[in-house]
Amino acid sequence: MCGIIGVIDRTKARMDGSSIKRALSLMNERGSGEGAGYVAYGIYPDYPDCYAIHVFFDNLIEPKSKVDEVLQKWGRIVHQEEIPTYEQPGLKKEHVPWRYFYKPYTDFIVGSNNPAEDIVKHLVMAVNSTIPGALIFSSGINLGVFKAAGWPEDVADFYRIEDYKGYIWLAHNRYPTNTPGWWGGAHPFNLLDWAVVHNGEITSYGTNKRYVESNGYKCTMSTDTEVVAYLFDLLGRRHGLPSEMVVEALAPHFWDEIDRMPEKEQKLQRTLRLTYGPALMNGPFAIVVATSKGIVGFTDRIKLRPLVVGENGSRLYISSEEAAIRVMDPEVNTIYMPRAGEPVVGRVVQ
């Protein structure tokens, strides 16, 4: 199971976290109180060009000094602080959430089109796979993930997410079958500008994981959702595919459909499938992916998990349940269910 919801205000008007907290809590029967989380874009306007690096530290001694050291080696820490948290009776504080506002030294690597992002990606992989007691769970500019093991309302109150204002929010209510109770296992997953919430189980995980590993990513969170963020990063950022096309690569048309398409479209789809076969995601899933430019929601090719879309003016909602959208926005006027594999895209208007 698991419940997901995402919202974007296409005019970039910012919303605080209180309504998404209500929406997520409404879907508590899709969760088990062992993981919940939120991501919001546009929350750090004071640091518009710094990577906001959120870390779970097991303690502030060894792991933190190691992380400080590696960050300072590759760039400048503009500011750092403990992420404010507020004790909740139903939530055990397992880690210290910390945040760095960080600028990498871009002249440190050669042969990269986007050195800053490549350095940050490298740091995330390096810290998570080599420094015990430290886990970077959020690493984009002007965005942040807030997650923990607990019920959605407890996690929201623990971070007081109503204090943050963003123009995109994604949230996730977890019913874990893998790694229960581990904070790192809660969603959303984030890498650089990409954040993912996911309901389902990816039966092609082994294949997808090998493919991203083959392209220099390291899967460290022992869960299949992580791989979605890396696939979007690889296809969307590094290969420069538009997000609709990334969705078509991950949940491609069936060959029967492709065979019936007009020549030019057929060629595109065939090339896409052959090139990105190992990126195809199989198994039941509904996913919402966000970047600072918009959100995209989609399901597996035979829609084995629910996904509902709502619209109201500049706001677009994507969720597992219609009721969750209605609780967030009672005025919502259009509600519909996208077809299997069909991407639902909400873009920021420039």
Binding site: E201, T203, S204, G206, T207, R210, P278, N282, G283, R301
Partner: peptide, 16 residues
Amino acid sequence: AAGINSIESLRGNRDR
């Protein structure tokens, strides 16, 4: 039975 509907997703899938 393994929840896979396309051969690409079985290829190299040691997980299964």
